[in-house]
């Protein structure tokens, strides 16, 4: 094993890490805002991948071009999710909240299986193809641009939440819903916005991944698990924590796969989660 292979693994781990971070950021945003873990997160990822797949198949739109459309579709579905389901369970017991989003995930996944069969599909001849070579290190172009776009969207999200007025209103709602309402912030609208934003993050990651990943109804399951791990690792509700945790997961996955045994990739990531929550239950950046 040469040093080049290890550098290669570190870079591909980093690239995947940025994608995981963006997926996790969507989850974290929703959790931070209303205390609900979206167990259907992976299914939303799957939906955005299918959305970009169908836009490519039916209209011939390349995934990079169709990002805004997919974002819009997912944002609308996020708002619908809030108004049709989440609104009613905000005050319910945690078990009901978990079951509701779990029910949504079962529903979406089996609906996708029913409508589009469990076949594996992929976007043929995307604009982003081939690989880059930098100083003897090979990077797949789609992966490179995917993580670049994800990192940029992550920064935009961070700026939006921390600098814009709406973002500050979001944070106010997250901190104290009642106090925010007395200041004239419509918390219901904020929650809907949170869902729209959270799912837009997922849609960007999903669209970029449809360039190089197979698309099938169960595709979201593992990414959602990584997102849960990233959110818990970074601390529930911390957006910067997601970035760090996403990178850690990406690195652990690729280095563990390279140095120990690739067939246990998922286990290393899970192990990290278990160790962190046992010794530091609030996560690395948790309050």
């Amino acid at each position: 094993m040469t040093i080049e292979i290890i550098i290669q693994a570190i870079i591909s781990g980093l690239l995947m890490g940025f994608i995981y971070a963006l997926i996790a950021a969507g989850l974290s945003l929703i959790f931070g805002l209303m205390g609900i873990v979206n167990f259907a997160h992976g299914e939303h990822l799957m939906l955005s991948m299918f959305s970009s797949f169908w836009l490519w198949t039916l209209l011939g739109l390349d995934p990079i071009i169709s990002i805004p459309i997919t974002m819009l579709i997912l944002a609308i579905s996020g708002i619908l999710t809030h108004y049709l389901l989440i609104r009613y369970i905000l005050k319910a017991k945690m078990i009901v909240q978990i079951c509701a989003t779990f029910g949504l995930s079962v529903f979406l996944r089996s609906l996708a299986q029913f409508l589009w069969t469990p076949d594996f599909r992929n976007v043929g001849n995307p604009l982003l193809e081939g690989r880059l070579e930098i100083a003897g290190i090979f990077i797949g172009q789609p992966q490179f641009y995917a993580s670049l776009v994800c990192l940029l969207s992550f920064l935009l999200l961070y700026l939006f939440v921390n600098k814009s007025e709406t973002g500050l209103a979001l944070q106010a709602t997250a901190q104290d819903r009642k106090a925010a309402e007395t200041l004239g912030i419509n918390s219901n609208k904020m929650f809907a916005l949170g869902w729209a934003l959270g799912l837009s993050c997922v849609s960007i990651a999903g669209t970029m991944m449809s360039n190089f990943f197979f698309i099938f109804p169960d595709v979201g399951v593992h990414f959602a698990l990584f997102a849960f791990v990233a959110v818990a690792l970074g601390g529930f509700g911390s957006i910067i924590g997601c970035l760090i945790a996403g990178i850690i997961i990406g690195l652990v996955e690729s280095l563990g796969g390279l140095l120990i045994d690739p067939s246990y990739k998922l286990l290393y990531v899970f192990l990290i989660y278990l160790i962190v929550v046992i010794y530091r239950p609030q996560g690395l950046f948790g309050r």
Binding site: Y88, G103, S110
Partner: peptide, 23 residues
């Protein structure tokens, strides 16, 4: 066999309805 996931679609809908109306 091909529509094996229909039961899960119904499960999903039922469970969401239960969570909303009869927690």
């Amino acid at each position: 066999g091909t529509g094996g996931s229909v039961d899960l679609i119904i499960y999903g809908i039922l469970i969401m309805l239960i969570c909303i109306f009869r927690p």
